[in-house]
C-alpha cells in the first residue's frame, strides 16, 4: 500500500508539472477536435482507431463516448457529435430527427460482429443447432413451456435447459431476436439476462445445462471455458450443415444469420473539416486490420473499397435503414448506391 501511495503521489506531481510525454510530433498539421459517441460494441474498434490516429496526429483531439447506439444517435441528431457509432442501421425515427435538424450523414459499414451460440464444456449432446431449434427455445411462446432440452429436440436429454442471453437494452438482443425469432425484441422473458457479456460467460461456464449467445469476441477470450456450437440455417446457399463462426465464415456470409454489420455515421458537415475527413479515411483504411485485433471480423476487401468510394463521394443517406440486416448482402446494397463511374472502376 505504501508503494502505491508513493506511486500515486509521484504520478500526481508529474501530471501537475505537465511533463506528460508528448506523442510524436505532429507531421500532418491537422488539428481540432473530433467527437465520437454511440454503440459500446463499436467502442473497442473506435478506441483502437482513435489511438493510432492520435499517435500520427497529436494535435487532433479525438474523443469517444459509449452511450449506446440509440443514445449516440440522439446526440448525433442534435449536432453534438461528428461521428456516431452504431451496432445496427439508423432507424427511420432517428433519420427523421437528423433531417429535422438539417444533419446529413454518410453511412459506412466498418466491420462484422458474429454472435456465438455457446454451451458448457461438459455438454456432450449438442454438436450443432439449427435456427429452427433456436427459435423454438427463444420465441415468446416458449416462455414457461420449453423448459427441458428434449422438448426442443427429442434426441437431447430430458433435463432442464438454462438460457443465458443479452439484456433487452442491448443492440445484441435486438439483433439476435430479429435473426432467430424473426422480429426484433420478441423473446421469452424467463432467461438469465445481462448487459455484461462477461456475466453470461461466467454463467454458462458454471452450468452444465446452459445455452447462451453473445459476441464472438467473448468466446474467443474464454475458449477454454466454453463450447462453441455450429449453427445451421438450413439454407443450402449459405453452406451445408452446421457452420462454425470464424472470421472466414462470418466474412464470406456462410455463418448466417448470426453475423451482423457494425457502422459509423459521419455528419456530412463535419466531414468537410480536414481533420474529420482524414480521420474517416483512416478509419476505413484501417478498420479491417484493427477489427481483427479487437475481436471483430473484417469486411471483405471489396466492400472496404466500396465504403472508401462512398466516403470519397460523400454519398449521404442510409441504404440499410428499414431493411432487415439479417443475412444482408452488403456488397449489393452498397453497389446499388455507389455512383456509376465508381462502380465501373471497381469492377476493373
Amino acid at each position: 500500500m505504501k508503494n502505491l501511495l508513493i506511486t500515486t503521489a509521484v504520478a500526481l506531481i508529474l501530471a501537475s508539472c505537465g511533463t506528460k510525454q508528448q506523442q510524436t510530433e505532429e507531421s500532418t498539421g491537422l488539428k481540432g477536435e473530433i467527437k465520437l459517441d454511440g454503440s459500446s460494441t463499436v467502442y473497442p474498434l473506435a478506441e483502437a482507431v482513435a489511438e493510432d490516429f492520435g499517435k500520427a496526429n497529436a494535435a487532433v483531439k479525438v474523443t469517444v463516448g459509449e452511450s449506446g447506439t440509440g443514445g449516440g444517435f440522439k446526440k448525433f441528431g442534435r449536432g453534438e457529435t461528428d461521428i456516431s457509432n452504431a451496432s445496427r442501421p439508423i432507424k427511420a425515427s432517428e433519420d427523421s430527427a437528423c433531417k429535422a435538424a438539417n444533419i446529413e450523414y454518410i453511412e459506412l459499414p466498418i466491420a462484422y460482429d458474429g454472435l456465438a451460440i455457446v454451451v458448457n464444456k461438459e455438454n456432450t449432446w449438442l454438436e450443432k443447432i439449427t435456427v429452427a431449434e433456436l427459435k423454438k427455445m427463444w420465441e415468446p411462446a416458449a416462455q414457461g413451456k420449453i423448459t427441458k432440452w428434449n422438448q426442443v429436440n427429442p434426441k437431447w436429454p430430458a433435463q432442464e435447459i438454462h438460457l443465458f442471453g443479452a439484456g433487452t437494452q442491448s443492440g445484441t438482443f435486438d439483433y439476435f431476436t430479429e435473426a432467430v425469432v424473426g422480429k426484433s425484441k420478441e423473446c421469452r422473458g424467463d432467461y438469465t439476462a445481462s448487459e455484461d457479456d462477461n456475466v453470461l460467460v461466467q454463467g454458462i461456464a458454471g452450468d452444465k445445462l446452459a445455452l447462451g449467445f453473445f459476441g464472438l469476441a467473448y468466446y474467443e477470450g474464454n475458449k477454454d471455458k466454453l463450447k462453441l456450437i455450429p449453427v445451421d440455417d438450413e439454407k443450402k446457399e449459405n453452406g451445408d450443415g452446421g457452420i462454425v463462426p470464424t472470421s472466414e465464415t462470418v466474412q464470406n456470409g456462410t455463418y448466417q444469420p448470426l453475423s451482423r454489420p457494425l457502422f459509423i455515421y459521419i455528419s456530412k458537415k463535419s466531414a468537410e473539416r480536414a481533420e474529420v475527413k482524414a480521420f474517416a479515411e483512416y478509419f476505413v483504411a484501417n478498420a479491417g486490420k484493427l477489427a481483427k485485433e479487437v475481436g471483430y471480423v473484417a469486411l471483405p476487401d471489396a466492400v472496404y473499397e466500396l465504403v472508401k468510394k462512398r466516403l470519397a463521394a460523400g454519398t449521404t443517406g442510409s441504404v440499410f435503414t428499414g431493411k432487415n440486416t439479417v443475412g444482408i448482402k452488403m456488397e449489393e446494397l452498397l453497389k446499388d448506391e455507389t455512383p456509376v463511374e465508381a462502380t465501373a472502376t471497381e469492377k476493373k
Binding site: D37, Y43, E47, A50, G54, V62, T63, V64, G65, K75
Partner: peptide, 20 residues
C-alpha cells in the same frame, strides 16, 4: 456522469472546467 456526457476515450487532460 455518463448521462451528462462523460466520455470513455479522452486522449488529453482537462485544462479548465469547460473541457470534456
Amino acid at each position: 456522469l455518463i448521462v451528462v456526457g462523460a466520455l470513455t476515450y479522452v486522449p488529453f487532460t482537462p485544462k479548465s472546467v469547460f473541457d470534456s
